[in-house]
Simulated scan of single mutants.
Amino acid sequence: MAKKNVKKMMGVMSGVFVHTGNLSKEEAMEMTGMDEAEFKTVYDKAANVVKKLESYDSAAEKYDKFSKHLWEELQEYVEKFGPFGI
């Protein structure tokens, strides 16, 4: 179970880089070991992160808020490790 949750977290992170044009979708799926159906869920979460970041005007704001918005999307996977899992 832990391995699956970590894989999903990696998928969300790599999905952010797909949405920003830094990786191809195929590269991200290869990196995470996911097929297209598996990747869709994490790719949608990555889209949420990018969409929120687009609301900020400056690069400084985007950098500042990146980890906050990424955490919001990763939280469901991290919580499965329990309160002392990280």
Rank of each mutant, 00 (worst) to 15 (best):
A2C: 02
A2W: 02
K3I: 06
K4M: 03
V6W: 00
K7G: 03
M10A: 14
G11H: 12
S14P: 00
S14Q: 12
V18P: 09
H19C: 11
H19V: 05
T20F: 00
G21Q: 06
N22C: 03
N22V: 01
K25N: 07
E26T: 14
E26G: 08
E26R: 15
E26F: 10
E27L: 09
A28S: 14
A28C: 11
M29I: 04
M29K: 14
T32F: 02
T32A: 06
T32Y: 01
G33N: 02
M34W: 03
D35G: 03
E36R: 13
A37Q: 07
F39T: 04
T41E: 15
Y43W: 06
K45W: 04
K45A: 14
A46H: 13
N48Y: 11
V50T: 14
K52Y: 08
L53I: 09
S55I: 01
S58H: 04
A60H: 11
K62V: 06
K62G: 00
D64H: 09
D64R: 12
F66C: 08
L70P: 07
W71H: 06
E72M: 07
E72H: 02
E72S: 06
L74H: 04
L74S: 00
Q75W: 09
E76K: 15
Y77E: 13
V78Y: 14
E79W: 05
E79H: 05
K80G: 03
G82T: 06
P83A: 11
P83Q: 11
G85F: 03
I86Q: 12
